[in-house]
């Protein structure tokens, strides 16, 4: 079972990954090289602290990797070094005398999950990236990583219109496919009327039966989808979309909405926890078992939530690999 929980908030001034879990499954093919900013802004160790201060001000960065004449990493000057230099009046000294020497750096061929581990462990602002010859080839900040992940998820929340353009193609988060290929199913959830909740999932069950997907897997898929659909109806003003496709014995289901998002996904995953209204409870839902049921029935699950909506991808892997192959 792979569960990925991510709450991503990107505003022009604040790029932040609030929570993560098992990003590695998603970013398995990516390396530091794909994430870093290039070209790196560096200085040689002979330059002065004053020059470092000017460079940091002009580029609005909080640290500068220091290199030797072969562009190999030898140190780092941080804002803190600059402040100390100003206070103690050695701002015109060469950098070599005051730089940080044991720098935490990344290698360009590190996979992204390792990069993320470094960022979570050290909590520095920026990390020089070096190649196998110790040459500085780029820099990675939290912002770089957040943007990369968002880009990967096709989930950059910008203007409404821009966002729609990005979300519409319906890229899978768990595979490199796009929704729309193979045996494809889609359904627009539009249930201001609670009576309609669940119709997308019952018709999807028929779709799977028509494609001779194994009965037990069909059951797991349609129950998971049902809970996800009901969630959209209950918590996202009833407006959303289901996209699904079958490939290589797996069914991929993507449920998106434009609701207010889930406040705390971890809490929402706990059995029995609910924010549902009385009206919803009268329908027999809102018992706080929805996400838990999805987790129970699915093989892979990704939930992305932001204040612009929830995107949930559920994958059911059939034991019978020959079923659900696109014809």
């Amino acid at each position: 079972m792979v569960i990925l929980i991510a709450e991503l908030y990107v505003t022009p001034s604040k790029k932040k990954i609030l929570k993560y879990e098992h990003f590695d499954s998603l970013l398995i093919h990516d390396h530091a090289l794909d994430v870093m900013s290039t070209p790196p802004i560096t200085l040689t160790k002979e330059a002065t602290m004053r020059e470092a201060k000017a460079l940091m001000r002009d580029h609005r960065i909080s640290g500068v990797p220091i290199v030797d004449d072969k562009e190999a990493l030898v140190g780092l000057v941080t804002l803190e070094n600059i402040i100390i230099a100003l206070e103690n009046n050695f701002i015109d000294d060469p950098i070599e005398k005051h730089m940080v020497r044991d720098v935490v750096y990344l290698k360009d061929d590190m996979d992204v999950s390792t990069v993320l581990e470094y960022l979570m462990t050290y909590n520095f602002g920026r990390y020089p990236v070096i190649d196998k010859n110790n040459k500085v080839v780029g820099v990675i900040t939290y912002g770089d990583l957040a943007l990369h992940i968002l880009e990967r998820l096709g989930n950059v929340y910008l203007h409404e219109k821009k966002r729609e353009e990005i979300l519409m193609p319906g890229k899978s988060l768990l595979s490199h496919d796009s929704y729309g290929n193979g045996d494809f199913y889609s359904y627009i959830i539009d249930s201001s009327d609670l009576d309609l909740a669940g119709q997308g999932s019952t018709s999807f069950k028929k779709f799977l039966q028509e494609h001779e997907f194994p009965p037990e897997d069909t059951r797991r898929a349609s129950i998971s989808l049902y809970e996800a659909e009901v969630n959209v109806v209950l918590h996202a003003y009833g407006k959303g979309e289901i996209r699904a496709y079958l490939k290589g014995g797996q069914v991929f289901m993507l449920v998106t909405d434009n609701g207010p998002g889930i406040d705390d996904i971890e809490l929402a995953m706990q059995p029995g926890w609910t924010t549902a209204s009385d009206e919803v409870r009268e329908r027999g839902f809102g018992a706080g078992m929805g996400l838990d049921n999805i987790k129970k029935y699915s093989d892979k699950l990704i939930i992305l939530s932001s204040n612009a909506g929830v995107k949930m991808e559920i994958v059911i892997v059939s034991e019978d690999k020959n079923k659900g192959v696109p014809t």
């Binding site: 009576d195 059951r219 329908r283 027999g284 839902f285 018992a287 706080g288 078992m289 929805g290 049921n293």
Partner: peptide, 24 residues
């Protein structure tokens, strides 16, 4: 009366007894 509880059942081909009346 809680459909999510029913969805958590592992059994099939059963009888469901419920006081809830809805299309769901």
């Amino acid at each position: 009366d809680l459909m999510s509880d029913v969805l958590a059942y592992v059994a099939q081909d059963i009888l469901l007894i419920t006081g809830l009346l809805s299309p769901q």
